[in-house]
């Protein structure tokens, strides 16, 4: 019977898709499982409050790396989020259809595909080579460059969801376009814009490669945002993971757990706190 054969093929293919989905999720659980198992046993108060111990010695923590990551994220956000939102405003409110906006949109998409290590090289040559200092500023700029296209895209999607009728209502009241955009359109899309921005922050907070050439890394506290290298969780994890010391390996797992926790929190807050709250 043709029908039994067709049914068999149908079941087989649907079965394969389900199995593939299961297979895809195995590494996620394997990875999270190891990070939690190895990370928790190495986490203690010292980890959050102390500087790294001297090479190969036990004890110490990643206080400077945790603070460094937060500082880098802050610098990147201060630069990247406003620029991203402004570009998105241009693309939705001023110029949706011209060749320029199409070019900008396309460039934005392509920019998201440029390897982050390339961004690291370019920012390093532009800032580190000129100022002669690895710095938090250089690291923050490189993360901002990665953030900008992500923020543009998510903000644009959100602004497009604001009904045109809302803008017309504003025009009809004799409100200037600037105030319509800043006081009416942006607040209407605010939750979505914040969600997108937080996801972009989450995305860059695990970036390592561009920081290697810009923020470098630091076993101590950083005193200047423009003149001193600064530690960050991802770079510290990398350094420790590739070192020969067991103690550092344990700290790398603990660092990974903290880093994933930060990223996961940002993701969850972005998704649930800002998406579903209603008036």
């Amino acid at each position: 019977m043709i029908n039994t054969r067709r049914n068999f093929v149908n079941k087989l293919m649907l079965g394969l898709f389900s199995v593939a989905t299961f297979v895809a999720l195995v590494p996620l659980f394997a990875l999270l499982g190891y990070v939690i198992k190895n990370g928790i046993t190495s986490l203690n108060l010292d980890f959050f409050t102390k500087l790294p111990a001297v090479m190969g010695m036990s004890g110490g923590g990643m206080a400077n790396a945790i603070a460094g990551t937060l500082i880098l994220i802050a610098i990147a956000s201060i630069i990247g989020i406003p620029i991203g939102i402004l570009v998105a405003i241009y693309l939705t409110e001023y110029d949706r259809y011209s060749w320029l906006s199409t070019t900008v949109r396309f460039t934005t998409d392509v920019l998201t595909g440029i390897p982050s290590i390339i961004i690291g090289i370019v920012v390093s040559m532009a800032i580190v080579a000129k100022t002669k200092h690895f710095s938090a500023f250089a690291g923050g700029v490189s993360l901002a460059v990665i953030m900008i296209p992500l923020v543009i895209r998510s903000t644009e999607e959100m602004l497009k969801l604001v009904p045109h009728a809302i803008r017309e209502a504003g025009y009809a009241l004799g409100i200037s376009q600037r105030r319509i955009i800043l006081n009416i359109v942006l607040p209407t899309a605010a939750k979505g814009i914040i969600t997108g921005a937080m996801l972009a922050v989450a995305r860059v907070s695990g970036e390592t490669a561009p920081l290697l050439f810009t923020a470098l890394g630091n076993q101590y506290w950083t005193h200047s945002l423009f003149k001193d290298p600064i530690a960050s969780l991802p770079v510290q994890i990398y350094t420790y993971a590739t070192s020969p010391y067991d103690e550092w390996h344990r700290q790398a797992w603990a660092g990974s757990l903290v880093l994933i926790a930060i990223i996961l929190c940002l993701n969850l807050i972005a998704r649930f706190a800002f998406r579903s709250r209603s008036n």
Partner: peptide, 11 residues
């Protein structure tokens, strides 16, 4: 899976 940093994958 996409949100996990690549350095953690490396570890």
């Amino acid at each position: 899976l996409a949100a996990i940093p690549s350095v953690v994958y490396g570890l």
